[in-house]
C-alpha cells in the first residue's frame, strides 16, 4: 500500500513536471510560428500621380514604388494601380493582379471593361466580375485625394468598397 502511494507520487511528479516543461516550450513556439509578427507601421500613403490626369470613366494605370516589409527586410518594389475617378474628389484604385490567378489585366477601351489576357475574365469599372473564372471582384488599394494628388495606402482583399 505504502509502496503504491510512493509509486503514484513519483508518477504524478514525473508527468506533472514534464507537462509543465512541454507547455512552457510549446506555447511560445506556437506563438512564434503561428501568430503574425508585431504589425510594423504600414507604409504611409504613397503619392502616385495628379488627380488632374484622370478623366471620369477612363481608368489610368499609375506606377509607383512602395516599401513592403518582408521579414527582417524592407523591400522597395515597383507596382501599379488602375485608378478610376469616381467623383470630384474621389478615386478608386484597383490592385494590378487579376483575382483569378494573378495575371496582369488591362483596360479594354472597346469593350469598356478590364480584361485579363490569361483566362479572359472581365471586370466592370466598379471592379465587379462581368464574365470569366475570376472568383471575386478586383482587389482595391485604400485611396484618397489630397491637394490634387492621388494617394494610395494598403491593399484590401475582396473588392468591397
Amino acid at each position: 500500500m505504502a509502496d503504491d502511494n510512493r509509486r503514484n507520487f513519483f508518477l504524478t511528479v514525473i508527468y506533472g513536471l514534464w507537462g509543465l516543461i512541454a507547455s512552457a516550450l510549446a506555447i511560445p513556439a506556437a506563438g512564434y510560428l503561428l501568430l503574425p509578427g508585431k504589425t510594423r507601421k504600414p507604409a504611409a500613403w504613397t503619392p502616385v500621380g495628379e488627380l488632374a490626369e484622370l478623366q471620369p470613366g477612363a481608368p489610368t494605370e499609375m506606377m509607383f514604388r512602395r516599401n513592403r516589409a518582408d521579414g527582417w527586410k524592407v523591400t522597395s518594389e515597383k507596382t501599379s494601380a488602375w485608378v478610376v475617378k469616381t467623383g470630384d474628389n474621389d478615386v478608386v484604385a484597383f490592385a494590378p493582379g487579376c483575382t483569378h490567378l494573378g495575371c496582369a489585366y488591362h483596360w479594354d477601351e472597346q469593350g469598356r471593361h478590364f480584361l485579363c489576357p490569361c483566362h479572359t475574365s472581365t471586370f466592370g469599372l466598379d471592379g465587379k466580375v462581368l464574365s470569366g473564372p475570376a472568383p471575386r471582384p478586383l482587389d482595391r488599394f485604400e485611396a484618397k485625394v489630397q491637394n490634387g494628388k492621388v494617394l494610395i495606402g494598403p491593399i484590401r482583399k475582396g473588392g468591397a468598397a
Partner: peptide, 25 residues
C-alpha cells in the same frame, strides 16, 4: 534566421523585436 553577415544581425533583431516569443526563444 539568415545565415550571412549583416543579414544575420537584422534577422536576429527581427526575431527579438517583431516575433511573438522570439525574445524568449
Amino acid at each position: 534566421y539568415a545565415p550571412t553577415p549583416g543579414e544575420a544581425y537584422n534577422s536576429v533583431r527581427y526575431i527579438m523585436t517583431e516575433l511573438t516569443g522570439g525574445s524568449l526563444i
